[in-house]
């Protein structure tokens, strides 16, 4: 698999505090990478390293195959767009002037494509209104438009739906999917809204205490998120025997609890359990969500 961004034991320390603790992360090219972790887990610190805003204490990373200590890393960064923390906009300029400014910074020869970008993010009719007078949602859209300047290969979005209304959230989601599918742009998205992230991400990375605890594809997550019936029985060994005999997939949680991955009709299996001398106490239908995976991996005492 080809990776657009890859870290190797990346570490960042501030005195005795370790913000990144040997991070090993790999973002597949062409993916929408959902970056999930609690506040202070190290998401933004890692993004800042990727963007060249901070230097690591040890370890290394590769961006588009170029090592972080290679002089060409700045050229590679010209192929990324990012909205880190808050959108970087010139408040005393209009949306159009902001994009012109970004075009100049990137050294693009013409201002072609600005109208299209404004259209894409829904800011085409803002006219002479200065960005300082924009709502938070409009600034977020402008930040995304700025990130899109120069047709980047990788876009990093830190909480992209912050301040957006439901319609705006849908539009941004559709935009991300469209850019990913049509132009092959890779995304790294950190978001607190896990359900929203689950609608777009094709790959996930879970970070906790400065360490990547798990990376998985959407397919792998889908398998873990399958519908199941959680059964509490008097003996899971008997349950296992019955399920094996019927060819039903299951997962033993403990002596009395198991998840059964099939739509089990109570009337059908009740007799088998009675004959085997096993009592069924409860049966609850459940569906694992990204949130549940998140909670099981990282715990739920703080927000994502």
């Amino acid at each position: 698999m080809e990776y657009i961004f890859k870290t190797n034991n990346l570490e960042k320390r501030y005195g005795s505090f370790t913000a990144l603790n040997g991070v090993n992360m790999a973002v597949p090219k062409g993916s929408i990478y959902g970056f999930v972790g609690k506040n202070g887990a190290g998401k933004t610190t890692l993004i800042r390293h990727l963007c060249g805003l901070q230097e690591q204490t040890s370890g290394s990373f590769e961006l588009m195959g170029i090592k972080d200590n290679d002089k060409a890393i700045n050229k590679a960064r010209r192929r990324i767009g990012a909205v880190v923390e808050s959108p970087a906009v010139y408040k005393d300029m209009t949306a159009r002037d902001n994009l012109k400014q970004q075009y100049l910074t990137l050294g693009l020869p013409t201002f072609d494509g600005i109208d299209e970008l404004l259209e894409i993010v829904g800011l085409a009719d803002t006219g002479k209104k200065k960005a300082g007078k924009f709502s938070l949602g409009m600034r977020q859209r402008l930040g995304i438009a700025i990130a899109l300047c120069g047709k980047p290969d990788l876009i990093i979005l830190d909480e992209p739906t912050n301040g957006l209304d439901p319609q705006g959230i849908i539009e941004i989601r559709e935009l991300i999917i469209k850019l990913n599918k049509e132009q092959g742009i890779s995304f790294i998205i950190s978001s607190h809204i896990l359900d929203e992230l689950a609608r777009v991400a094709t790959y996930y990375g879970f970070i906790d205490k400065g360490r990547i605890v798990k990376e998985m594809s959407a397919e792998e997550l889908g398998k873990e998120c399958r519908k199941s019936v959680r059964m509490k029985v008097s003996d899971t060994k008997i349950l296992a025997r019955i399920m094996d005999s019927q060819g039903i997939e299951y997962n033993i949680i403990d002596d009395k609890t198991a998840d059964v991955y099939s739509e089990v009709a109570f009337s059908t299996i009740a007799k088998d359990f009675e004959e085997a001398g096993c009592t069924i106490y409860t049966m609850d239908e459940r569906e694992e969500s990204l949130e549940a995976i998140y909670l099981s991996l990282l715990g739920g005492d703080q927000s994502a």
Binding site: C51, A82, E85, Y90
Partner: peptide, 16 residues
Amino acid sequence: PEFSDGIIRNKLITGA
């Protein structure tokens, strides 16, 4: 605004 609005951050991100 270089720091308060993230302008300098944006320049570095774009490869300067």
